[in-house]
Design a protein around this nucleic acid. Structure first.
Lengths: 128, 128
DNA sequence: TTCCATGCAAATCGTTTGCATAAAC
DNA sequence: GTTTATGCAAACGATTTGCATGGAA
């Protein structure tokens, strides 16, 4: 299971140097240019494996398909609820205290890269 | 547009006194017991209207369908990445500072109820 | 009587799955 | 040679949509 696969390497490489939180479709399009034989299910399957291996993370957004990210350095995500775009931000939350509080209140053990904040982006505000 | 509708009132009532972050399907099942004629599309349509009116909020989870919540008092959400369950927690983030930081870095204007933290819940840990 | 919300069924989008073939070990 | 990943197409779950009808103002 999860043997080496040239396709998976391609997919990881693509996500690694794309800083725009691409969707599976976007990843497929890009990878498809380098290997026109690759299928969409292979892309989905390998993305899922990479997420499970914690090589990349999945960002679920309220508007539109899931997005994916390679965490070069730790950061958090701000998500636009209008258009589904994802933005990086850095902020040092008091993770120890926060983790403890949440575990006490809910039982949930949080992961470091797990904070997302929802709002509305500049572009979408100006459209309103 | 968005005239009064008995069905919408029913749906809002149901969400208002359900504290388990129900899915659209769950809301439909409950409301359907009181009004067996109600259709699923009416439930979806009205949920969307209520979200737009900010009467309720939509919580998108990585695993499974969207969930919905009525915010009796402000709180944040911890989401289990394994099973998709949503838990409430209270924590006073320094919202002014956080809002400013995020806006400067990303342009995104955050909403108060917009913080979600991802992790893994007790039940899912013990299953592993 | 005009207009909007409903119910139904069909369509849509994103994603997953079954199966025969091809690649990895 | 055996096992596991691939490509294709078909299936799937959640949600949205078109259209004829019914209820609200």
């Amino acid at each position: 299971m999860n043997n080496y696969s040239r396709q998976r390497e391609l997919i990881l490489e693509e996500i690694r140097h794309t800083r725009t939180h691409p969707t599976a479709e976007e990843i497929y399009q890009k990878v498809n240019q380098k290997d026109p034989k690759i299928s969409k299910s292979t892309v989905y399957r390998n993305i899922n494996i990479l997420v499970e291996q914690k090589a990349i993370i999945k960002i679920t957004v309220p508007e539109g398909p899931d997005r994916f990210d390679y965490l070069h350095q730790p950061h958090h995500h701000a998500i636009c609820e209008e258009c589904g775009k994802v933005f990086d931000f850095e902020y040092s939350f008091p993770m120890k205290k926060l983790t403890k509080t949440i575990q006490e209140q809910t039982g949930v053990i949080v992961n470091q890269d797990g904070i997302t904040i929802h709002g509305i982006c500049t572009q979408c505000i100006s459209k309103q």
